[in-house]
Simulated scan of single mutants.
Amino acid sequence: MPDLPPLRDVVNRYGLIATKALGQNFLFDEQLLDRIAAVPGRLKGENVLEVGPGPGGLTRALLRAGAKVTAIEMDRRCLPALAELAEAFPGQLTVIEGDATKIAPATLFDGPWHVAANLPYNVGTALFTGWLSGQSWPPQWKSLTLMFQQEVAERIIAPTGSDAFGRLAILAQWRANPRIAMKVHRSAFTPPPKVMSAIVHVTPADMPEGVSARMLERVTEAAFGQRRKMLRQSLKGLPGALAALDQLRIDPQRRAETLKVADFVAIARVLSA
């Protein structure tokens, strides 16, 4: 294992100040980073996509775990620090300068991959929903291990009936298994964000048969677009939706947050037929 200088020294040497515009908050605690890298399980020889590695804190931990890391970084100030890591771990790290929202992971790997990232706050949810969307399932990724604001993490795992339950929970839960693996105090970051954070771990599950992913998105978009209204009002603009409620014996006077994920899947299945 290479003897690396403290990450804080690397940041100071290259003058890397976290910028709010890029949603950056750096983690320096090596033990914490190793714990995060351990969440997906054994990574030795596994392909891992990392988005927004910054100076390479989590990257170091993933490399120590034996992963083959492909890191996408759009802040060119961080590239020299990442280049040092690539030299220290020959053949294990590939760094791509670019915008992760515009790069298809499938073009980067020959086989399946994991995703592990302290996601930039300003693009985290968009990337997450992109990885979970689309009709093709199971996905090519094997797991997602992602840092979010704690509020977003709680929306991902939210149960039916809770204030946090909504479109993000349904998207994450209808064919995947999300959980909060650990919480991270704001004081662990430099600079400290205003909110607490959490690590969400997601693995694919079986996709229900006879359901169009796009139709499920349309149903949830309509239902939660007016979440305080009854279903008979929020779904009336979606052709066939009210008839589907009647067929499934779902009371149209209920509100969207009272339905289970399985209920939304059932409605989408009827409308997909």
Rank of each mutant, 00 (worst) to 15 (best):
L4Y: 12
L7M: 11
R8F: 07
V11N: 04
Y14D: 02
G15M: 11
L16K: 07
I17K: 14
I17H: 08
K20R: 14
L27E: 11
F28P: 12
D29E: 03
Q31A: 15
L32W: 10
D34Q: 15
R35H: 08
A38I: 03
R42L: 10
R42W: 04
R42C: 13
G52D: 06
P53F: 06
P55D: 11
G57H: 09
R60W: 07
A65C: 05
A65V: 04
A67D: 03
E73V: 05
R77E: 03
R77F: 01
R77W: 04
L79K: 01
P80A: 13
A81T: 04
L85C: 06
L85H: 09
E87C: 08
P105M: 08
A106Q: 13
F109R: 02
D110W: 01
P112C: 12
W113G: 00
H114V: 06
A116Y: 05
A117M: 05
A117W: 07
Y121H: 05
V123S: 00
G124M: 07
T125Y: 14
A126M: 08
G134I: 06
W137V: 01
W141E: 13
W141F: 04
K142T: 15
K142E: 15
L144Q: 09
T145Y: 09
L146A: 05
V152P: 10
V152A: 07
I156F: 10
I157K: 00
A158F: 06
S162V: 07
L168I: 15
A176W: 05
N177C: 08
R179I: 02
R179D: 02
A181C: 09
V184Q: 03
S187T: 15
F189L: 14
F189A: 13
V195Q: 09
M196E: 13
V202E: 11
D206F: 07
D206H: 02
G210N: 04
S212C: 11
R214W: 08
M215I: 06
L216W: 00
L216V: 00
E217N: 11
E221S: 15
A222Q: 12
A222R: 10
Q226M: 15
R227K: 13
R228E: 00
R228D: 07
L231I: 01
R232K: 14
S234D: 04
K236L: 07
L242W: 08
L242A: 08
A244H: 12
D246L: 00
R249H: 13
I250R: 01
D251R: 09
D251H: 06
Q253S: 14
R255N: 07
E257L: 03
E257K: 13
T258H: 01
D263L: 00
F264L: 04
I267E: 00
V270R: 14
S272D: 08
A273M: 02
